[in-house]
């Protein structure tokens, strides 16, 4: 059976760069120069509890965790040639 990845997804339209998420789950969330979250990799292990808390604490309700093989926020590898 294929292992389903848990992925943290940012709705970039809702997100207003409060930045709480990156403080709560620094293992998987970095901030860009303007304070908007960049998701680094899948949600796993110890990071899971932090990710769930980040989802709950987001003032804009812009975060969600999805179990899927396809990621909406494609951050796996660069397409740069």
């Amino acid at each position: 059976m294929a292992k389903r990845l848990l992925t943290l997804i940012v709705d970039p339209i809702k997100c207003d760069a409060y930045g709480h998420c990156a403080e709560i789950a620094p293992e998987i969330i970095a901030l860009d120069p303007w304070g908007y979250p960049i998701i680094r990799g899948a949600v796993s292990g110890a990071a899971k509890a932090h990710a769930e808390m980040a989802v709950r604490q987001c003032p804009r309700q812009a975060l969600s965790i999805k179990a899927s093989a396809v990621e909406a926020n494609r951050r796996v590898g660069s397409t740069r040639r």
Binding site: V10, D11, I38, R75
Partner: peptide, 13 residues
């Protein structure tokens, strides 16, 4: 500039 492209990629609705 290239670093910025990496930062932004895949992050729009």
């Amino acid at each position: 500039i290239l670093d910025l492209t990496d930062v932004l990629e895949g992050r729009g609705a």
